[in-house]
């Protein structure tokens, strides 16, 4: 039994920490206002560090990192409150596009790819319904396409004779219309409409989608654990320094107990994450749901204990809570995930 990071994992963690360290909240806000919602030069930097390649198989020219390796990256990016869409445009496409010709440019950072799966009225289902392919033409509307404002390539789930298949469509293709809109974490998602967009053969179907999404759920859980721990640390530091009634907030028993509750949740979700990563019979959806629920609570408490300051966009606190909220719902919310677990058990 051993829960230590190995040498490589430590290197990955340190490398992500160095990558995130120079970006303070003000810089982060500036990046969010850039075209697409982040800095493409920093995306290339991330790729150069091998942090996108880690998600791709060696046969695809990647580093072939394990789920644990990748979760270390995800958790560290969460702790760093990175604006780069590593999860959405790095890990997930690297898993979806394995074995295809697109993967090299994704790993190198040249091509920003994202999954377009959600449809109006579909709630959290992964089934493609209204978006369909017939005679080589893709039609329909996808919503909540993450990083859709910046993406170069869409991996689109579409209905083909009742089955869900995955197609690859460049943003620049004829018949692709992108309407970006801001979402919780300040990034730009998009509604993407396809009108007779030409597609070639599908790269896979539901099986490929489901397995990539399940792996991504682990990464989302990891990122939320990182976010929550960051908020915990900042809040702990805050209650030690902020004084009211002539003493630091942390001297009040109510605050002490609350901090212990937060700490306890953070420990619990770290354990839940390790369990999900290390055990083969993992229910990724349930793990992610549970971690999300606790992480949201941690985020809310971090805001509460910062008082008015916690409400502003000037601290990391609100940004952390907002990223947690977004991740908590991507591919299913806590309620749907735990309900699924109950059914499966």
């Amino acid at each position: 039994m051993n829960f230590d990071l190995d040498e490589n994992q430590t290197l990955f963690r340190d490398s992500v920490e160095r990558f995130c360290a120079p970006v303070d909240v003000a810089t982060r806000t500036k990046m969010r206002r850039m075209d697409g919602g982040f800095d493409r030069a920093r995306w290339s930097e991330l790729a150069d560090l091998g942090l996108i390649g880690i998600a791709a198989d060696e046969s695809d020219g990647g580093l072939g990192g394990s789920i644990l390796d990748n979760s270390v990256v995800a958790q560290s990016l969460g702790a760093g409150l990175a604006v780069e869409p590593w999860l959405e445009c790095g890990f997930l496409p690297a898993r979806l596009l394995t074995g295809t010709s697109y993967i090299a440019d994704v790993i190198s950072g040249e091509c920003l790819a994202t999954l377009a799966f959600a449809e109006r009225g579909g709630r959290y289902t992964l089934d493609a319904r209204a978006v369909s392919v017939r005679n080589g033409k893709l039609n329909g509307e996808k919503t909540f396409v993450l990083a859709g404002g910046a993406a170069d390539l869409f991996i689109v789930s579409a209905n083909v004779d009742g089955a869900t298949k995955l197609f690859v469509v460049p943003r620049s293709a004829v018949g692709v219309d992108v309407r970006p809109y801001p979402v919780a974490d300040g990034s730009l998602a998009a509604v993407v409409t396809f009108r007779d967009a030409a597609v070639s053969d599908p790269i896979g179907g539901m099986e490929r989608l489901q397995s990539a999404v399940d792996e991504t759920r682990i990464m989302m859980a990891a990122e939320m654990v990182g976010c929550a721990q960051r908020l915990f640390k900042e809040t702990l530091a805050y209650v030690k320094t902020r004084e009211q009634f002539g003493q630091p907030l942390g001297r009040f028993q109510v605050i002490q107990h609350r901090m212990v509750d937060i700490y306890s949740k953070c420990e619990a979700i770290q354990s839940a994450l390790y369990r999900a990563v290390l055990q083969s019979n993992t229910n990724a959806e349930a793990a992610k749901a549970y971690i999300a629920e606790e992480a949201i609570w941690v985020g809310q408490q971090a805001v509460q204990l910062h008082g008015g300051m916690g409400m502003t966009d000037e601290l990391a606190i609100g940004h952390g809570l907002k990223r947690i909220l977004l991740l908590s719902k991507l591919f299913g919310d806590p309620a749907s995930g735990i309900a699924q677990f109950a059914k499966a058990a």
């Binding site: 959600a118 109006r120 709630r123 909540f144 809109y181 801001p182 979402v183 909220l325 719902k329």
Partner: peptide, 28 residues
Amino acid sequence: TVDLFAYDGLQLPTSRPLYGNEAPEPVG
């Protein structure tokens, strides 16, 4: 309310106001 609207409940418009002619078009 946020949970009711699933993905649509994650949009966070940056401009104000959210009423009248200047309001950004909602998703959903």
